[in-house]
Write a protein that binds this DNA or RNA. Structure first.
Lengths: 225, 225
DNA sequence: GTCTATAAAGTGATAGAC
DNA sequence: GTCTATCACTTTATAGAC
């Protein structure tokens, strides 16, 4: 009679989810230190001591939040990443063909750009950047969750498209491609001022996308035989 | 007999400077919230209440720190920016010549790359990124201090080198160039894992610089008449 | 300008009843 | 699982003597 499927309707799991949701928003908005467990409990409509019961301590809650973030991002990038893997698997001389590889690469970067310009990212982006500079245990959750897979695909596609390029060079190139997209999130205010924009809406995202595609075409022109 | 030069040798200015120096390091290392005025006072060898006396409150100290950061960065980028302005001033048909413009652009980006890979940036980079996403009054200090000038120069050089490109397109291109450099700071941990590096030393900075120069050459190949 | 001392308001964590 | 109550500690800010 017992089911192996997790039961999300029990009272405990409900509070767990409520706390997790509130914590993700709160940590994202204000950063680790500014978040108080008191305010969090109120916002989640839950007793404060239940946070300790479910997540141990504040640090445990923090880690659980990163699992949630990684899951969310992974889900959004998954279609593009799966397509890229499929294209790379169609291996052999020439693989799936240049045009195909390039289209897949664009789809991959487009997915990340959409994520980075999405207002939803306003919050957790800061948490991720913090982990990038002072990695804690939480960084592994992110890297294993989506980052490593994404960067690896970028590098492998770049290697195939450019030809006659070493693998480390391709990886470095992948980093610079990543940076071109990241810029619109991590240097957001600077970009807005330079462009005299007030926000990055759909139209402007399209302009950025066009610029990125042009850049990719220039950067990935084959260099060797 | 009175001099107009600020007197840095009075007792008050000495404590002011000591606090400011300690605060810059502390905010940079730990972020605004983690820094306590108690610890700061001890580290600066100053009585805690003097911080309130000189800077009003914690927020006032924070702003003063941004002025210090902007001044430091401006000083490091200044040679490259001055050279770029000189090159752009030698205007007219063809200006100073393509090769000259390109060299100046590389010098500009090299300066930023050195700054971004310098361990000294470990600290204040995070502060700047935070301001980029939730700009406070402190962001204006940064943008007016160096960021606007730097981005503007990048855009104007890109416009001249590419030819037949609209000004907004050139500015967007400048953002993607910026991103390629920023990546090695803001996505530091991810880059390190992908490249299987433990740090970004001088040799690796040189490899990045080579990659960036290659990218710039490809991106800024003239497209029109 | 500099100091001591302390006020006033948090903080995370936990014991123990239900 | 959930609650109340409280502990032990830290924070910023300031009053007032020198």
């Amino acid at each position: 009679m017992k089911t192996l499927v997790l039961d999300h309707s029990t009272r405990g799991n409900l509070t767990r989810d409520a706390v997790l949701q509130a914590a993700t928003a709160a940590f994202a908005a204000d950063g680790y230190d500014k978040v108080t467990l008191r305010a969090l409990a109120i916002q989640a409509g839950v007793n404060q001591s239940l946070i300790g019961y479910h997540f141990g301590n504040k640090q445990g809650l923090y880690q659980a939040v990163f699992v949630a973030i990684a899951t969310h991002i992974r889900a959004r990038l998954d279609p593009g990443m799966a397509a890229a893997e499929a294209a790379l698997d169609r291996t052999g001389p020439g693989g799936a063909g240049r045009d195909d590889d390039f289209a897949v690469l664009c789809r991959l970067t487009d997915g990340l750009l959409d994520l980075m310009t999405d207002p939803v990212a306003d919050g957790w982006a800061q948490l991720i950047i913090r982990e990038q500079q002072r990695p804690s245990d939480a960084f592994g959750i992110l890297y294993n969750g989506f980052m490593g897979r994404f960067l690896g695909l970028l590098a492998r596609l770049a290697e195939r498209l450019r030809g006659s390029i070493t693998e480390p060079e391709a990886r470095l190139l992948a980093c610079t491609i990543l940076g071109q997209i990241l810029a619109f999130r991590v240097a957001r205010a600077g970009v807005l001022r330079l462009m005299a924009w007030s926000e990055i809406d759909k139209t402007r995202t399209a302009a950025i996308r066009a610029c990125l595609h042009r850049n990719l075409r220039a950067l990935l022109a084959p260099t060797g035989p």
